[in-house]
Design a protein around this nucleic acid. Structure first.
Length: 559
RNA sequence: GGCCCCUUAGUCAAACGGCUAAGACGUCGCCCUCUCACGGCGAAGAUAUGGGUUCGAUUCCCGUAGGGGUCACCA
């Protein structure tokens, strides 16, 4: 077989050589130790948690080392591409602090464009580059074409691959495939010519020289030492439309773009042997690999499953809707990424997570379950340390989008809203009431809208309650300081036969009709409509004399 | 089914072969307390399993089981 002739037949228009490519995309000039990483999504939908995870790692590693983090759009499957997905991806990522130095960016016109010297950054625009290397492989006898008629191709496209594979017998299928592969390798120049003349499309397959009986030692930065069987599958390099498969594009792009660390999900581990082979065939230096464990969820049988796009908590846009602040999600991700993050954070509470020295060695090699409990805890801590102004701003912004009526109430008087969120904030032991912005309404909505959410417990005499409210009203003075205010409540308690001191009450409960906590509760329900609320003195202060009295009066009338 | 990866409490996880196996979240109890929240104290709860190597194994090796992933002209 004359491989040079075959190469010219297959790629008559390719005149450039790999050397030309190398010259066009020279190695990056970066300081020692600088890492070049990328996020390479296929634009098939929204960003999900499982995508934010590796992109955060890439961002951290690159920026922490003075390297480059770039975005490459892997749009080699036109069938699955979703219009506008890439733009959405970039915006969502930016929302979570993942920004790119280079690659596909959103231009002033709102459309995707390139930034950087190693583009194009959309794989669909890199066809000629792939073809240079494809031709080279053919020239060296390392790749060969397999022709298909248009009808066969249509039939191929029609079947649901995944369903088909599940249904068939693996053994039988494998030997059949192997046989077909061996046969396809025997293609002659005559056959190539006649197929080309007939206008039949072809795929380019790699001529695999591996023996799966032999194990290839490999060190993954996350998984550690691995043994992978050599690849013996003549996998597809170029699809019949001339567009590369992931495998081929990965090798060419990450080589030319100078990626030093390939960060991807562990679902790529089974095809790693293919990639090692490709890099070897192409004469490319191998990047470091980090195969990170998947984020899992529990299925209905209690088994762990890969967190997939349809799952609750997968779509990052859901977090916005649920009212999680981006900073909280980022921190939660950091706790999953590096187990010592929390410890560091406790000692460096005021520093941003980007100051944390992220360490590859601290990454877990096993998949973790997504835990809303933990997210909420992380979230409460962060929000508890925010200023009242910041909370007001963010809650208002969230509510205006997802609960407009409430949002407008919050926005009407920002000083009032801020005063509410300032309750119990700022000290060493701040309140932790909010995990999400959506928690705000149940927490402090009563300031705007006093619904009777909770009833007085049955055991209390309505006459006692009425009497307590009336007596309080008679003595209430908004100018009182907190202890005076409380003394007055104590006085009310005594007057209606309730204990004004909890210790005295606990010592002999039968001596009283109730206690000071009960009296406070009478007031609380009247003023807030709830059994539980933040400090009642402050609540009354914020509500103001008129509103406080109005609410208590209203309750007295209802009793 | 073949191959690969993974396995310490419900969850996330420490413990370069060496105490009584950390810590955090969650759960429960007590304290503080005008309720809630915060905070404090405490409790329950784990090395999947069987062998080996070793004075000694969560740690190293082998088997088993369980879980996950993957096996496309998808990424």
């Amino acid at each position: 077989m004359d491989y040079q002739l075959l190469a010219d037949l297959l790629f008559p228009n390719v005149t450039e050589t790999p050397a030309d490519m190398e010259a066009k995309y020279p190695p990056r000039q970066l300081p020692e130790g600088a890492k070049v990483t990328r996020f390479a999504p296929s634009p098939t939908g929204f960003v999900h948690f499982g995508g934010l995870f590796p992109s955060t790692i890439g961002e951290r590693l690159a920026h922490q080392s003075g390297g480059v983090f770039y975005l490459r759009i892997e749009d080699t499957d036109a069938k699955r591409e979703v219009e506008g997905a890439a733009e959405g991806l970039i915006r969502t990522l930016a929302h979570y602090g993942v920004y790119f130095d280079e690659g596909a960016v959103i231009g002033e016109d709102g459309k995707i464009c390139d930034k950087g010297n190693y583009g194009p950054y959309k794989q669909s625009e890199r066809g000629p580059i792939y073809h240079v290397y494809a031709k080279q492989l053919v020239r060296e006898g390392k790749a060969y074409p397999v022709f298909t008629t248009q009808e066969e191709l249509d039939a191929l496209n029609a079947v649901d691959k995944k369903a088909e594979i599940k249904a068939k017998d693996w053994h039988e299928d494998q030997s059949a495939q192997r046989e077909a592969m061996l046969k396809a390798r025997q293609i002659t120049l005559e056959e190539v010519n006649s197929n080309l003349d007939a206008g039949n499309p072809f795929v380019l397959r790699l001529l695999a020289d591996g023996d799966p009986e032999k194990k290839l030692p490999f060190t993954d930065l996350v998984k550690g030492k691995l043994e992978i069987p050599e690849n013996d599958e003549d996998f597809v390099l170029l699809k019949s439309d001339g567009i590369p498969t992931y495998h081929f594009a990965h090798a060419v792009d990450d080589h030319l773009m100078g990626t030093t660390h390939v960060i991807r999900g562990e679902e790529w581990l089974p095809s790693l042997a293919k990639h090692l082979m490709l890099f070897r065939y192409l004469g490319f230096r191998l990047p470091k690999y980090m195969h990170i464990a998947q984020i899992m969820r529990l299925d209905e049988n209690g088994n762990k499953k890969k967190l997939s796009k349809r799952d609750m908590g997968a779509n990052m846009d859901d977090y916005s809707r649920m009212g999680y602040a981006p900073a909280c999600v980022c921190e939660y991700i950091m706790t999953l990424l590096n187990s010592n993050y929390e410890e560091w954070h406790m000692q460096n509470a005021e520093k941003p997570y980007t100051d944390f020295p992220f360490n590859i060695k601290k990454m877990s090699s096993s998949g973790c379950l997504f835990d809303f409990n933990k997210l909420n805890d992380v979230s409460k801590n962060i929000i508890s340390r925010m200023s009242a102004e910041e909370v007001t701003r963010q809650v208002t912004e969230w509510a205006l989008t997802y609960d407009p009526a409430f949002g407008e109430q919050l926005a009407k008087d920002p000083a009032f809203t801020t005063a509410i969120f300032a309750i119990g904030r700022g000290g060493k032991k701040p309140r932790k009431d909010l995990a999400t912005w959506a928690d705000a309404k149940p927490y402090m909505g009563f300031f705007f809208d006093c619904k009777q959410e909770d009833e007085y417990p049955e055991q209390f005499d309505r006459a006692d309650i009425r009497s307590a409210l009336e007596k309080f009203l008679a003595s209430y003075d908004p100018a009182d300081d907190m202890s005076t205010w409380f003394e007055k409540i104590k006085a009310v308690a005594r007057e209606i036969g309730y204990a004004d001191d909890m210790k005295a009450y606990k010592a002999d409960p039968t001596a009283f009709r109730g206690n000071i906590a009960d009296v406070s509760m009478f007031l609380r329900v009247a003023v807030t409509g709830k059994l539980n609320a933040p400090d009642l003195y402050t609540v009354m202060q914020i509500l103001g004399d008129d509103e406080t009295r109005a609410r208590i009066t209203c309750m007295i009338e209802k009793l």
